[in-house]
């Protein structure tokens, strides 16, 4: 039907991305070979940014779907809608991406129910096809199409794991928080703060990340550090910025809140 590139999904300006390993050449190679990507790593460590960068580098539109447990197959593939007394077919994001040869990125794929994720199976192996039963159509993905999924192995329960039959179709890229030096550089770039402050923010992040045994589910992500940095640049005092951008989003537990605040007051 429409093979026009999805303009609004094209990324025109180079997103800032600091590679921590060989992920970029690997992903490009996977794209060329027509293999799908599985990104895993904690929240806020740069998975989505990496996808944006990759889409920019490959000059393909990027269609992101945030998965949730009510996501149905029709939400991905498409459905008939009733418009003015007529049933009109409407493509879902996945179908749109296949038609346009775009990159389809399913964020937090484990949140979707297992029977929904099965729909990507024929797309994710060497068949690279998407059957649309209701239209009686079999879409063959163009070479430029790429499928990518992400998930966070950290906090999800065992119940929400990917099926082996799903997993075993992907190239797996593991993401983690960058090394302290790199992370500070990212905070400088994205948050706009001075290097010294960025280093202190990273130190704070490392402290919170070691609180797992004390009941903190996940430590401060790079994203939170950047947000704290941006608040500082906007003229908020560093202690307040950290309290609102780091402590508050991390936990509601009064004692942990107190402990993280004390860390902030010690560092700044």
């Amino acid at each position: 039907m429409n093979s026009i590139p999805l303009d609004e999904h094209l990324i025109r300006r180079e997103p800032y991305y600091h590679a921590s390993g060989e992920e970029i050449p690997l992903a490009v190679a996977a794209w060329k070979a027509g293999m799908p990507l599985l990104l895993k790593g904690p929240t806020g460590c740069g998975k989505t940014r990496f996808m944006q960068y990759l889409a920019w580098k490959l000059a393909r539109p990027l269609i992101t779907v945030s998965c949730h447990d009510d996501l149905s197959t029709s939400d991905l593939v498409g459905r008939y809608l009733i418009r003015a007394g007529e049933a009109v077919w409407s493509d879902g994001p996945l179908t749109m991406a296949v038609r346009a040869g775009a990159i389809c990125y399913l964020d937090e794929v484990v949140e979707a129910r297992k029977d929904t994720t099965v729909v990507i199976h024929p797309l994710a192996d060497d068949r690279r096809e998407l059957p649309i039963e209701k239209l009686g159509e079999l879409l063959i993905a163009p070479d430029s199409f790429m499928l990518a999924v992400s998930y966070n192995p950290g906090y999800q329960s065992i119940l929400k794991d990917l099926k082996p039959s799903t997993r075993q179709r992907f190239i797996g890229l593991s993401f983690d928080y960058p090394a302290p030096e790199q992370e500070a550089e990212i905070v400088v770039q994205e948050g706009g703060v001075a290097a010294e402050i960025a280093h202190t923010l990273v130190k704070l992040a490392l402290m919170t990340r070691s609180l797992k045994d004390s009941g903190l589910v996940e430590g401060a992500s790079t994203r939170l550090l950047i947000q704290a940095g941006k608040l500082m640049i906007a003229g908020i005092s560093s202690r307040t910025a950290c309290t609102v951008a780091i402590t508050a989003p991390l936990t509601d537990d009064p004692e942990l809140t107190g402990a993280i605040d004390e860390m902030i007051f010690s560092l700044f």
Partner: peptide, 15 residues
């Protein structure tokens, strides 16, 4: 103690 113990663990990054 409730506040200082996680603080200490955060500083030391161990238990």
């Amino acid at each position: 103690a409730g506040r200082m113990e996680p603080y200490l663990r955060g500083l030391a990054r161990r238990d």
